[in-house]
Structure formats: structure tokens, C-alpha cells
Design a protein around this nucleic acid. Structure first.
Lengths: 333, 333
DNA sequence: ATAGTCCTTGTAAACGCTTTCACAACATCT
DNA sequence: AGATGTTGTGAAAGCGTTTACAAGGACTAT
């Protein structure tokens, strides 16, 4: 790899002059500028960002942690954040935390060691106080899909409770009174918020919640299949099910179908997230739209903001879910 | 940020000793080792990888370029590659090229400037000779989903032609003789290879290809909708369609349905890629399985190999597609 | 005693860049 | 004339690490 020194030698100037050309410093004579540019071309010189960052203390990069590099949810977030950031010359470095405490910690460590100018975190296991400490003595921090009350200005989150409320209310308004809830893992707060919204809706409509209506699945693909079977085995005359996400909903529908129940004729199903493929499943899934892309976009914007690179309002805050009615729910009777 | 110097001062030793502790060098007395470790804890010291890499000339990172950070295809590739690499202590840095020449170039530049130890490229626009040059004077290079004949040992690609052949043959074996092809964009080589496979199959079964059977869509979501409508407008009595990917297939099915055609009763449809949701669409899509995850895994493995960190065989080479028969195709008559 | 090992430690020179400072050369004002 | 800017330039210090290399101390073998 050629260095700035060699370029300087070739151009017959000092390193300082080459550096000035590289950084667009106007205090360089036209002659020298040309010479340097020629030398750069000829040698195929490529500045070493490591060295540069070492002295400038800026890496022009934002670090992001997501649950996993795969999957439609994170894909959209990364994609949108990257769009916003790259337009401002900031590169996004993404790493997976895999919803695992140790991995999340080491991911943070990794990004910190790389001296990212800003951190965008989607972490499940890292406890609040560690995040708080990080926010205090690290680079600017943005937390997505989670609310730290003391750091709300750095958080972007979804009103999960409301989403679940909307979904359940939709079922109630269509006359359903025996409504199951296939929730996510019991230890995720997303999951619990959604359960809360479900219960509030029941309560508002004067329906008494029954424990046998609730069952837990996991958020990944096929997460709802087993859960739905458990539910069915309980014989609890349900006519509708609110599912904590679309994967659960789709795989639960499969289980229902196998049990001879038709969706939506025998049982109505609502999902959550509105991931891309919900439009293509049959019946097309009624679900709660999660503005993921907006979340990604805002994360990028807020990052720029905190790095002092964006004008206008900060983009933190709560995002609103919306009900999308399709074909997997119908009125009772 | 605390530096190694401060740690040294606090522990009452030299920087060199701290560095030795950091790097697990055994030539440090137990006493000093403890002192240093204590100092590190107390100060919350975090080594600066930038500085480290500057001198060691290793960044312990592999750079990857994909078309976009979103989407199931790249998601899987990134995910699998990351799994393999992170287990070996190598971090994956992913950047999007957005299938755009300039962006791909600048993505390469970015990764090169970051001094990644290895590059994994999924690029569409970058011409062969630029890749060849890169392979020559840059870090180890891996090219996925594309074959550079002179660099086959660094490539991992899919036999697209064969996949298309299998798909088309399946339709032919079921008695179809008027088979459309909804291809991808005409300028992508994936797309053209798949067209070639389609035509070879027709030829092998003695069916004469007709130009009005071919229509181009794009690979993204809904890419097949318009294309299918064009196809229908041609009145070409087709009974089956081979689609160049699953997104095309799914949106084409929608167009067929809108036109009053039932899949598979009136028209059979085969997709390509076998992305996750094809199992959940209705009718469940017959498609060609593209071993994406295997491709990602191999890319990671090959990267390790080229960095001299893996034992065993190199993982380059051609991946085989497989036909997955589901419910969107049926026998004619 | 003396020389030869083996360990542990510190000193100082890199790594490739930016940036401050000083200085020369020249232009512009009293 | 002299004083005062203005510009373009290079020398050198520093960013936070690693890593020769050398040196000192504690042994052992003569």
C-alpha cells in the first residue's frame, strides 16, 4: 500500500501539502495541487482511514446493533438508516447481538473499540443501567424499539400497547368475545406490552379475560405453530386470535387449517408488524402496521442530529401503529 | 477515552507491559499482570483498535458488499457469513452497493480504506476487469453469485442455467407445451442465464420457443405484476409460466388471479429462489431452491481460508439448485 | 569468582496520517 | 523606505498502539 509519504516524494512536495490537497484545503498553489493529484493517480494511492481517524478522532461511521442480520424487520431498519446516513457521508457498520446478553455486550465493545462516532442500538438483553452508563460516557447513543424513560430523547419506539389494543378492538368490534392471544416470549418487553394492550381492549369491552386464552410462542418463523396447537388442545371455544407478530400469525393459521378450521370463517386471525409477505399469504393477513422503515429512517436522522450534522428537529419519539384490515378477520354471526 | 499510557501510569509499569497483558503475552510476572488488570478495570480502559490496526496491519474484519441491506436474500447471506466469521473473531462489515456502478465503486473504496483483511463482494455493475485488478493488488477477494472464469477459486456461484432448466423441465414433464418465461431485467447476467436454461429445456423437449412467451420484469417486490399483464395481453394461450424469482412469481400470480385465471388450475407457476415466504403463499409456490444460506456460509469459510485462518478445503465453487414441488403447478389434462 | 542462561522489564522507534508553528516570499499600505 | 499583511510551504509533534532491542536481576554451571 502506498502512503502519503511516497505521494509527497513523487510530487516533490511535503506530506503536509499532500494532506492539504487530500482535505480540500485551499491554501495550496495550483501547480502543486496538480502535481499531487497526478502522483495520487499514478501510484493508485488510497488514504488510510485508520491513521486518519487516529488523529482526527472521527471515523465517519455509525455503529448499529440489531438482533440478527437476517429477517425482514432488521433488514428494513438497516436499509433505511443506511440510506439516510450514507447521504451525509457517514457509513453504517452493523453487527448482530443475537438477543443474547454476552453477544450484545461484545457487539457494543466492538463498535466502541472501532471508535464509531455514534451508536444505534436495538438490544433486548442489555439491562437499562448498562445502557444508561453507555449513554453517559460513550459516543452519542440511540436506542430503537425500546424506551428508557430517562433518555427518551435518544429513543425511538413503537406504541406496542396501542397496537395490540387496536388489533383486539378490531376483533371485538366485529363481535368476537372469545379472543385468544398468541403472545411472544414471556421475557420480552415488546411481548408484554402487547399482552397489556390486548387485555385493556378486552376490559374496555367488558369481556373478562381468561388465562386459558393466553399462550406463548416465539417470534421467529413457525413460532406460532406449536402455540396454536396448545391453544386448540385447551378446547376453549375461541373465535379469534390476536397474534403478537406476523410469523406467529401465519404459522398459527397453518395449525388451524390442519385442525380443520377455516380462516376467517371459523376463526379470525390478526397479526402484528405488517411485514412484506403478509400481503401474499392466503387469506391476506389483517395485521398491525409497524412503521419499521420510518423507524430506520428516524434512527439515521437522529444519529446525524446527535453528531451535529443535521438541521431541524430531532427525530426521537414514539411511533404509532396502524390497523390494516385484510381478509383474515370477519364479523361474527 | 483512557489510553494505554494512563493504564501504565496507574499500574506503575511501562506501556509495553500493559500491551503484553492485553495481548496475552506470557512473559509478564503475575504481580504486574494483576496490577495492570486492576488498572484496566478501574479506568474502564478500552483499547483503540484503530491504533492497533495501524501497527499490526490487521483489522480482524472482513468487508462485504451486497445489493441492499434489506431483503430476504441478502439478509440470509449476511447472517450466515457473519456466523462463520464471528466465531473466528473476525467481524463482518457490510455495505450496500445498490446495484449501481458508482455506489459499488465507492463501497469498495470504503472497505479498502478501512483496511479490511478480506473482501466479499456481491456486485452487479462492477465490470470483470475491475474485479480482476482488485483481486490482484488488494486484500483477498471473494466474489459471490457470479463467476469470473480466471478467478474461479475465489468465486461462489449458483448454476442458474440448471435451475431454470429444472423448473422448465418440471412444467414440460407435466405436459405443458406453451410455457411463458417472466424473466428478470435484461441486463443482469443471472437473468440471462435463467433464460438460457428455460430455452434449453424447451429445446430438449422439442418445443419451439416463441418470442411472445418472454417478458421482462424486475427482481424486486411486485416485479412480476406488470410483466404478467403484458403477457396476458398478448393472447398467447400459455398454460404455465416460469418466473425468474419468487417475488415475480407471487406478484404474477396476483395478476393472473385478477384476470380470472386460477393457479394452478388454469395456469401453473414456478418461481426461483425459495425465499422464506413461498411456503406461506397460497397456493404454496413450486420453486427452485437457491441455497442462499449455504452461499453465505461458504463465503465466510472461504474468507477465513484466504486469511489463513481455516483448515480444510477451500469453499469456492458452484452451488446446485433444486426443484421444490409445492402446489402452484399441476399436470395438464 | 566468572561466565552463561533465562525472565522480566523498559526505552524508543515505528505505523500513516493531520495540524501547529515558523518562515520565506511577495504584495500592500503608511 | 519601512511596517504590515497575506500566502504557500515544510519540519516536526502527536494520535494510541506494538515490538525490536537492550538491560538488569536471578539463577545455574563451571
Amino acid at each position: 500500500m502506498t502512503t502519503i509519504k511516497e505521494v509527497a516524494a513523487r510530487a516533490g512536495v511535503s506530506q503536509a501539502t499532500v494532506s492539504r490537497v487530500l482535505n480540500g484545503n485551499p491554501r495550496v498553489s495550483a501547480v502543486n495541487r496538480q502535481r499531487v493529484e497526478a502522483a495520487i493517480q499514478e501510484l493508485g494511492y488510497r488514504p488510510n482511514t485508520l491513521a486518519k481517524s487516529l488523529v482526527t478522532r472521527r471515523t465517519h461511521s455509525a455503529g448499529m446493533i440489531v438482533g440478527s442480520l437476517g429477517g425482514p424487520f432488521y433488514g428494513d431498519i438497516m436499509h433505511e438508516a443506511e440510506r439516510v446516513l450514507s447521504r451525509a457521508g457517514i457509513h453504517l457498520i452493523v453487527t448482530a447481538g443475537n438477543d443474547h446478553l454476552e453477544e450484545e455486550r461484545s457487539a457494543v465493545e466492538f463498535l466502541l473499540e472501532r471508535r464509531c462516532d455514534c451508536l444505534i442500538l436495538h438490544v433486548n438483553e442489555l439491562p437499562d443501567h448498562e445502557l444508561a452508563r453507555l449513554a453517559q460516557d460513550g459516543p452519542p447513543l440511540i436506542i430503537i424499539n425500546r424506551l428508557l424513560p430517562e433518555h427518551a430523547a435518544h429513543c425511538i419506539w413503537l406504541d406496542n400497547e396501542k397496537g395490540a389494543y387496536l388489533a383486539t378492538r378490531h376483533l371485538l368490534e366485529r363481535g368476537h368475545r372469545h379472543i385468544a392471544c398468541i403472545a411472544g416470549p414471556a421475557d420480552k418487553c415488546d411481548s408484554n406490552e402487547r399482552i397489556a394492550g390486548y387485555r385493556r381492549a378486552l376490559h374496555d369491552f367488558g369481556v373478562t379475560y381468561r388465562p386459558e386464552w393466553l399462550v406463548h410462542g416465539h417470534f421467529a418463523e413457525n413460532g406460532g405453530y406449536e402455540a396454536a396447537r396448545v391453544l386448540l388442545s385447551r378446547q376453549s371455544d375461541i373465535t379469534a386470535a390476536f397474534c403478537a407478530n406476523d410469523f406467529i400469525a401465519v404459522s398459527a393459521m397453518e395449525a388451524f387449517r390442519e385442525a380443520g378450521l377455516s380462516v376467517p370463517d371459523d376463526i379470525s386471525v390478526v397479526g402484528f408488524d405488517d411485514v412484506m409477505f403478509t400481503r401474499h399469504v392466503m387469506p391476506r393477513l389483517t395485521t398491525i402496521h409497524f412503521p419499521v422503515r420510518e423507524m430506520g429512517r428516524r434512527a439515521g436522522l437522529l444519529a446525524l442530529h446527535l453528531m451535529g450534522m443535521a438541521e431541524g428537529e430531532a427525530a426521537s419519539g414514539r411511533l404509532q401503529p396502524e390497523l390494516v384490515v385484510r381478509a383474515s378477520t370477519r364479523s361474527l354471526g
